[in-house]
């Protein structure tokens, strides 16, 4: 149990990690250097190497602290609204560290094994979260399709505007597009009133 003073100010390790996260996000893994992370955090290289073995260890620690979306509902067959709210809360969780989310995309494309694995886990989390809401035949395929829509929206926004991506993916249009996709994927009988208006 630390004193109040200790818990209020970040530890050296936390300060190093915060700078590493910012610099990796800004310059990418390859361009970032331990020296530049030191300059940014105002901590000597020697002190950084005391906490981390090198650039790779820093990156792994940053990856370790990625935001984790909330879990899905306990009860099966939640409503369309609950499904939408869950997906948005997952997207909001990633958006709390937008630079890291963008970095993980680019490092994944660069073929970094650990990052790819983390991204696979993120997609599987979305599938596990939405599948209980999609009852009936073909629900596994529907859940996978919805997970691809969500990952595609985030990817599309990252590729357009980088770390500012939540402006697009979680903007008014973005949220409307998630709701549309849910309407398309849910079985016809679960659709709201607009379906009868179109017919």
């Amino acid at each position: 149990m630390g004193s109040p003073g200790e818990s209020a100010s970040p530890t050296t390790r936390e300060r190093i990690l915060a700078s590493a996260r910012e610099l990796f996000a800004q310059d990418g893994y390859n361009r970032a250097t331990v020296r530049a992370i030191g300059r940014r955090s105002g901590i000597t290289d020697a002190a950084i190497y005391h906490h981390f073995r090198g650039k790779r260890a820093l990156y792994d620690a940053v990856l370790e602290e990625r935001p984790v979306p909330p879990r899905g509902p306990e009860d099966e067959g939640a409503s369309r609204q609950a499904l939408l709210a869950m997906i948005i809360s997952a997207m909001e969780a990633w958006a709390r560290q937008p630079g890291l989310t963008a970095l993980m995309f680019h490092q994944g494309i660069a073929g970094d094994g650990q990052t790819v694995e983390a991204n696979v886990v993120a997609r599987e989390e979305i599938i596990a979260m939405v599948e209980p809401c999609l009852q009936g035949g073909g629900s596994a395929l529907a859940a996978e399709a919805l997970a691809y829509v969500v990952s595609g929206m985030v990817t599309d926004a990252i590729l357009r505007i980088g770390a500012a991506y939540p402006e697009l993916a979680l903007g008014a249009d973005g949220l409307r597009h998630v709701a549309e996709a849910i309407d398309h994927i849910l079985p016809a009988q679960a659709l709201p009133a607009q379906q009868s208006a179109a017919g």
């Binding site: 994944g108 494309i109 991204n119 997609r123 691809y148 969500v150 929206m153 990817t155 599309d156």
Partner: peptide
């Protein structure tokens, strides 16, 4: 919706 799904499949596959 199709575009987002397709972008998701593409860049997941490339990773």
């Amino acid at each position: 919706s199709v575009r987002y799904a397709v972008v998701g499949v593409l860049f997941t596959g490339l990773q």
